[in-house]
């Protein structure tokens, strides 16, 4: 009897998690078009944004940019990339920041600032919705359902 209840609970939990993943739109990961990085794998983007390893295929140091002002975009990005909620990402960074490890991504105030930083900073990398991606940027990875 107890076992069956446990099983039902587990099924319920699995269903909940499935429905949580389906909702997002697709996103693009972008860099400045003068960077000579053509494509990145999902794994490389995970390493860059989670501060594990920030060397680009061309040898430059990657500078990831977050968009805390646009919570729904940021939420979708980390959900699509690693299946994590904003609280889990903040918890992850609190461990690295307060143990004196890697720095978190740079925090951009607006979409315009992201575009400016991508143009100014070699190795800068950011994410956005496909319809807000200006032509001077290069898509290095697509994330989507």
């Amino acid at each position: 009897m107890q076992d069956r209840k446990g099983l039902l609970l587990l099924l319920f939990v699995l269903l909940m998690s499935q429905s949580a993943v389906v909702a997002e739109d697709s996103l693009v990961v972008v860099m400045g078009s003068d960077s000579d990085v053509e494509r990145l794998t999902r794994e490389q983007v995970v390493h860059i944004f989670l501060g594990r390893f920030r060397r680009l295929p061309n040898g430059l140091t990657a500078t990831p940019i977050d968009r805390p002002q646009d919570q729904s975009l940021m939420t979708d990005f980390y959900q699509l990339l690693v299946g994590k909620s904003p609280a889990e990402i903040r918890s992850y960074w609190s461990r690295l920041i307060f143990s004196g490890k890697t720095a978190p991504p740079r925090q951009a105030g607006s979409g315009q600032e992201v575009v400016r930083w991508l143009a100014e900073t070699p190795g800068a990398i950011a994410y956005m919705r496909p319809d807000e991606c200006p032509p001077q940027l290069r898509v290095v990875l697509r994330l989507g359902p």
């Binding site: 903040r90 918890s91 992850y92 609190s94 461990r95 307060f98 143990s99 004196g100």
Partner: peptide, 18 residues
């Protein structure tokens, strides 16, 4: 800096991280 005897031992004080 923090000691790293074990995997999470340098962030033991940061309750928000676990």
């Amino acid at each position: 800096f923090g000691t790293e005897f074990y995997m999470l031992s340098d962030s033991r004080m940061v309750g928000y991280s676990y």
